[in-house]
Simulated scan of single mutants.
Amino acid sequence: MPLKCINCNSSDIGKIGPHQYFCWNCCIEMSLAGEKLDVYQVEEDGSLSSLNDLFIDEAIDEPQATALYSDRR
């Protein structure tokens, strides 16, 4: 099963580092630290703004969050 973006549901996800993924469709970065999923918006200047308050409660029930975790194992 391909990875899907937690924001736009696109499967156009790239791996940009160990446990770090980037959605080329909506330009968000997803990072795994242990069992924690962090979600960031990439700003025009390259800085990251946390979107955890928008997605983390939803991510617990979303299948794509599980897919991100299963890719790591």
Score class of each variant (00 low, 15 high):
Val42Phe: 04
Ser10Trp: 03
Glu29Phe: 00
Cys5Pro: 02
Ala59Ile: 11
Asp57Asn: 10
Ala67Ser: 12
Ser50Lys: 08
Ala67Val: 03
Asp38Cys: 09
Cys26Leu: 09
Ile56Val: 15
Val42Leu: 14
Glu44Pro: 09
Pro18Ile: 08
Tyr69Ile: 12
Pro63Ile: 14
Thr66Cys: 04
Asp71Met: 06
Asn7Asp: 06
Phe22Tyr: 14
Asp45Gln: 12
Ala33Met: 06
Gln64His: 08
Ala59Val: 06
Ser31Pro: 00
Asn52Phe: 03
Ile60Ala: 12
Phe22Cys: 01
Met1Ser: 13
Ile6Ser: 05
Phe55Arg: 09
Arg72Pro: 00
Arg73Asp: 11
Val39Thr: 07
Cys8Lys: 12
Gly17Gln: 03
Ser49His: 13
Leu3Lys: 04
Cys26Arg: 09
Ile56Ala: 07
His19Met: 03
Glu62Trp: 11
Asn52Leu: 04
Phe55Glu: 05
Lys4Glu: 13
Gln20Glu: 11
Ser49Tyr: 10
Asp53Pro: 07
Trp24Gly: 09
Ile56Asp: 02
Lys36Ser: 03
Asp57Lys: 13
Pro2Met: 11
Leu3Met: 05
Gly17Val: 00
Glu62Ser: 12
Leu68Ser: 00
Glu58Ser: 10
Asn25Ile: 02
Leu48Cys: 05
Cys23Met: 06
Ala65Trp: 07
Leu37Asp: 00
Glu29Arg: 10
Pro18Asn: 14
Ala67Leu: 13
Cys5Phe: 01
Cys27Met: 06
Asp71Val: 01
Gln41Ser: 08
Pro2Ala: 14
Ser11Gly: 09
Leu3Cys: 02
Val42His: 03
Arg73Glu: 13
Thr66Ser: 05
Leu51Arg: 11
Leu32Asp: 01
Asp61Pro: 06
Asp61Glu: 11
Cys8Ser: 05
Cys27Ser: 07
Met1Thr: 10
Lys15Cys: 07
Met30Asp: 02
Leu48Ile: 05
Val39Asp: 03
Asn52Ala: 13
Asn25Thr: 15
Gly17Tyr: 01
Met1Asn: 08
Asp71Ile: 03
Cys5Ala: 06
Met1Gln: 10
Ile6Ala: 03
Ile6Leu: 14
Leu68Arg: 01
Glu58Arg: 13
Leu51Cys: 05
Asn9Leu: 14
Ile16Tyr: 01
Asn9Ile: 10
Cys27Tyr: 09
Ile60Phe: 07
Leu37His: 01
Lys4Cys: 07
His19Asn: 08
Gly14Gln: 13
Asn7Pro: 00
Asp71His: 14
Gly46Tyr: 04
Glu62Asn: 15
Ser49Glu: 14
Asp71Cys: 07
